[in-house]
Nucleic acid binder design. Structure first.
Lengths: 198, 198
DNA sequence: CCGAACAAGTCAACAAGACTGCCCTAACCC
DNA sequence: GGGTTAGGGCAGTCTTGTTGACTTGTTCGG
């Protein structure tokens, strides 16, 4: 097996892959001035790389624990959003995750069987099965959370508060309307931490 | 099918899911002062949401075109990194994508058969098959790129240059060493655009 | 109060994309 | 010449997504 360690190790310096700017001249280096604010192609392509690497390594962080328990990322996502929205209905969860009923059912069945998630009939509408984490579910979700927290906290610390605010603004802009609405409710809590509990 | 439009529509306002802060008091609201810089738990959880939604919607942007051609996201990733590193070897590409040989082989075989990627034996080491996009491959990659560009450019425009710089700093911090090294070479080009081509 | 609409669960079947383990060929290099 | 490396290939598995059709309760409007 190729050792897989070193794609970034070698600076790829002396012979940088022909370095061709052939074909697509459209990157264009801008009409002379207009440095900042101008969205050059390379800036966008870099962002593609950033999203790919950051998301991959971020999700990887919890995989060890999940693998031990025979669970997958889909289970983690469900745990996360149930934990964040205790008492959420199945269809609300489906709308957040944007997967089909069957995809969720498989995951949810496993989580309920293993005692991580509890279902209770809805108060107003008894057709609903409201979902919440059990004690075990909260404990597991916390273990998983801690792994990802380490990564994010380190990145936030290095980057500084202003950068984090910029990160949030850009990420909000990338996602579509629905997600933006969901996330805005959480963002309010972060921005104005004066709503302390009792 | 549940209409899937509205998970963000209802403000979930009047009865916010029992709102339990039970069990895990560790979110702790901080020792009185220390507002900025302090990494509160909610800040991290919000970032989890941002990563999930932004990455999902970002990748979705190109799916329509891919589906028409019977290709998947794995093909897109390969096209992207071959386009960005013309003449890359198979093992270098494997190290970037961090998938197994077989996973890449399936995707690569399809791309070569359909005329999007060309292979040529390595100059120094003839065991290598150096990869590059054909004309058709460049055209397809560009179509896919444009879709994602729209999203990212809009987000960057709304957020402003400073936010974009913060976004990059945070994303770089989230990914691990290997990816950081790879990305740094691209970042140099973005930050100092004075290396204009001839 | 009845029938349509809805929430949720279920079955069967399928596809993409990742994985493992093993083996092969050709080329490189000591 | 022999061990290592680059790449390819085969066989089988797993997770997570998909579709479509059907059932069982429950709600709600006419």
């Amino acid at each position: 097996m190729p050792d897989a360690k070193g794609f970034a190790a070698e600076p790829r310096a002396p012979e940088p892959k022909a370095l061709e700017a052939k074909g697509l001249e459209s990157k264009g280096l801008a009409p002379a001035g207009s440095n900042l604010l101008f969205l050059r192609e390379e800036e966008i392509r870099l962002a593609q790389d950033l999203l790919f690497f950051a998301y991959r390594d971020f999700t990887n962080a919890a995989d060890l624990i999940l693998a031990e328990l025979g669970l997958g990322r889909a289970h983690h996502r469900a745990l996360h959003y149930i934990g964040r929205n205790p008492g959420i209905s199945v269809s609300e969860l489906l709308a957040i995750l944007r997967i089909t009923k069957q995809s969720l059912a498989r995951v949810l069945t496993a989580l309920v069987e293993q005692g991580y998630v509890a279902q209770s009939p809805g108060h107003a509408d008894r057709r609903q099965r409201l979902l919440a984490l059990t004690q075990a579910g909260q404990a597991l979700e916390r273990r998983l959370f801690e792994r990802q927290r380490e990564r994010l906290a380190a990145a936030f610390r290095e980057a500084g508060g202003a950068a984090v605010e910029g990160f949030r603004r850009v990420m909000r802009g990338i996602m579509d309307e629905a997600g933006r609405g969901y996330v805005e409710r959480s963002e309010a809590a972060v921005r104005e931490p004066r709503i302390r509990p009792s």
